[in-house]
Amino acid sequence: MNAELIVLLVVVVTALGFDFTNGFHDTGNAMATSIATGALKPKVAVALSAILNLVGAFLSVEVAATVAKGIVNLGEVSGEALLIIVFAGLVGGIIWNLATWLLGIPSSSSHALFGGLIGAAIAGLGMNGVEWSGVLSKVIIPALLAPVVAGLVAATGTWLIYRITSGVRDKTKESGFRLGQVGSASLVSLAHGTNDAQKTMGVIFLALVAHGTINADADMPFWVKLTCALAIALGTYLGGWRVIRTLGKGLVEIAAPQGMAAEASSAAIILTSSHLGLPLSTTHVATGSILG
Score class of each variant (00 low, 15 high):
G259K: 00
A267S: 11
G176P: 04
V139T: 05
L9R: 06
P42H: 07
K199W: 04
I232F: 03
A36Q: 00
P257M: 08
A261E: 09
R163C: 12
I254T: 09
A264C: 07
L247V: 13
A218Q: 11
T287L: 09
L54H: 04
T200S: 13
L102E: 06
L278P: 00
K171H: 15
G23Y: 10
M201H: 03
L102P: 04
T282I: 11
A99C: 10
M220W: 11
L102R: 06
T282H: 09
T21P: 00
G119P: 02
I122L: 12
T213I: 08
H275S: 13
A267P: 03
W159P: 08
M260Y: 07
E62R: 08
L52Y: 05
V182T: 11
L52W: 05
D19H: 13
P221W: 00
A154R: 00
L48G: 11
F205S: 10
I164C: 07
L276R: 00
L271C: 03
I105S: 08
L291V: 06
G23R: 01
I140Y: 08
V55G: 12
I140G: 12
A216K: 02
T156V: 14
A268T: 10
L82W: 01
A231Q: 08
I140R: 07
T236V: 10
K69E: 06
G235W: 02
L16G: 12
T156H: 04
T165I: 06
I164R: 01
N2G: 15
C228V: 09
L74K: 02
V63H: 04
G277Q: 01
S266Y: 10
